[in-house]
Structures are given as C-alpha cells and as structure tokens.
C-alpha cells in the first residue's frame, strides 16, 4: 500500500510538471494556432539559462526565475519576428498550423546544434542544498524540488488564466485568432498582440525549463521528449482549453505512475503515447473539453 501511495504522489508531482511543460505549447497551438514543435527545445534552452545563472553567479534557480522569464520572453519575440509572423499572411488557419509545424521543426535542429556548440552535449543538472531532500506528509515523501515545481506550475497557470480571461490583452489574443480582420476593425493591433503572446509562450517554456533542470536533468537534444509530453497533455485537455492543462498534466502523471506499478519503468514513454492514441480514438476533442453548442 505504501508503495502505491508513494508512486501516486510522485505521479502527481511529475504530472504538475507535465502540465507546466504543456502550458506555453497549448497557448501557441490552442489560442494562436501555431504548432510549435520546438517548444521542448525552448524548455531545454530555459533550463540552460537557469543552469548557467547558478554556475556563473550562484543564484538559486527558483530565485533567478524572473531573469529567465524575461530573457525567454525576448527570445520568444525574436522567434516570432523571424519564424512565425510571416505565417499570418497565409489564407487560412489550417495552412498556418501546417506551415508553422514545418518551420518550427526546422528550428529544432538549429537550436539543438547551437546549444550543443555552446554548451557541449553533456547532461547537466542542478545541485543545490535542498536537492534530494524530502518532506514527509502522511507517511508519503515529497521531494522539495518537486513541490516547488508544483507551486510554480499552479501559480503560472493561474496567472495565465487571469491574463486570458480577465484582461483586454487576453481577449485580444482570442479575438485575433477567431477573426483577424474583424479584430483589426475593432482597433486591435493583431501583429503586436501575437508578438507579445508568443513572448509569453516561450517565457512559459523557460519556466518549465527551470523546473526540469532542478528536478531532472537536461541535455542539448532532450527537447523532443518534452515536446511529446506537451502534445499528450494538450490532447488530454482538449485543444484551446488552457484552463484544463494543469489538471490534464496531473492526470497523465497519475496514469503513468499507475502504469509503472503494473508494467515497470522501462515502459514510461509507451504509457503516455498509448494514452495519447486512446484519447484521440475515443474523444479527440479532449477529455476536459466542454460540450460544443451552436455554430
């Protein structure tokens, strides 16, 4: 029994991280209709920033987070200008999704190789005074970095929820995606709105990268693995359903842990992908999707 509880608790912590990993990806895909396959690679980049800030200046990764967020936001803006903004000229959303997939897939190789050149292919992880320490609650051990990750994930998700549904800026993003022409006729600067939201999406990748490098490890080509987690979580939550991303991530974490107990650690990735396929077959609009009504 104890091992079951312990594995499930770990699943919850990992699941929160899966949710965090998927947030920026789901923002770009679900709300703005850019399929950013380089999202996992940006997570790794964010992880490297955290790592080097600690190595060079000795600043704790949780404390240097604002710095990483700002740097990644700027990188996101440059990325948007170079790679994504030309796609707004495409005649329909379908072509935008397809073309963005190709362009960002190309970006993966550029970014991967740049990171390998800059920081070698070595696996890096962060060691702090509290790494490996645990907190015992009801007989279950929670790792401190894992709990920190959950806290960050929940805070970031709440902030994003508030921005998207509560502010003019968030509504502008949704309006621009539903009808860019109508949005510009309302006085919305569509280009600027997309520019900032792409910055936010990549900044979210940076946040996830910080948690990844604190709880696990990173290497320059590990982005694809995190991309696949982000994909699975987004499909579980339902495309465009940003509010369900963190719960969906936790659900995936729990399913994975349950699977680990049954079939063993070596099938970890397979479990996630099987869930992905089953959901696509049975409920392609996502487990958490609201019922559609009207046109």
């Amino acid at each position: 029994m104890e091992i079951v509880c312990q594995t499930m608790a770990n699943g919850l912590l990992v699941g929160a991280l899966y949710g965090l990993v998927a947030l920026g990806f789901a923002l770009l895909m679900g709300v703005m209709k850019f399929l950013n396959t380089a999202h996992g690679t940006f997570i790794i980049l964010g992880g490297y920033l955290s790592y080097w800030i600690l190595e060079l200046w000795g600043i704790d990764p949780f404390l240097s987070l604002p710095l990483v967020v700002m740097a990644m936001f700027l990188i996101g803006i440059v990325f948007y200008k170079l790679a994504l903004s030309p796609l707004l000229k495409l005649p329909n959303i379908g072509m935008r999704i397809n073309t963005s997939m190709l362009i960002t897939f190309g970006s993966i190789w550029v970014l991967d190789n740049t990171m390998t050149l800059l920081w070698t292919p070595d696996v890096r992880s962060i060691m702090t005074s509290y790494t490996g320490q645990t907190l015992k609650l009801l007989g279950i051990r929670f790792s401190l970095t894992g709990l920190g990750g959950v806290g960050v994930a929940v805070l970031v998700a709440l902030a994003l929820y508030f921005i998207l549904s509560g502010t003019y800026f968030g509504k502008h993003i949704r309006a621009a995606t539903q009808d860019a022409v109508a949005a510009s006729l309302c006085g919305i600067n569509v280009q600027r709105t997309y520019l900032f939201s792409c910055g936010i999406a990549i900044a979210l990748a940076g946040v996830a990268g910080m948690v990844v490098v604190s709880t696990y490890s990173i290497s320059s080509t590990a982005g694809i693995g995190w991309l696949s987690s982000a994909f699975v979580v987004m499909v579980l939550a339902g495309e465009g359903n940003i509010n369900a991303i963190i719960p969906a991530g936790m659900l995936l974490g729990l399913i994975e842990s349950a699977g680990l107990l049954v079939v063993g650690v070596s099938y970890r990735q397979a479990i996630a992908l099987i869930v992905f396929i089953i959901v696509l077959m049975i409920k392609p609009q996502g487990l958490f999707a609201k019922k559609e009504y009207g046109s």
Partner: peptide, 9 residues
C-alpha cells in the same frame, strides 16, 4: 460584410 462577430466569445 457578413457581420464577422467573434463566434466563440
């Protein structure tokens, strides 16, 4: 023309 309201909002 065609009203172009935001249907999902």
């Amino acid at each position: 023309e065609g009203r172009r309201i935001f249907p999902q909002m």
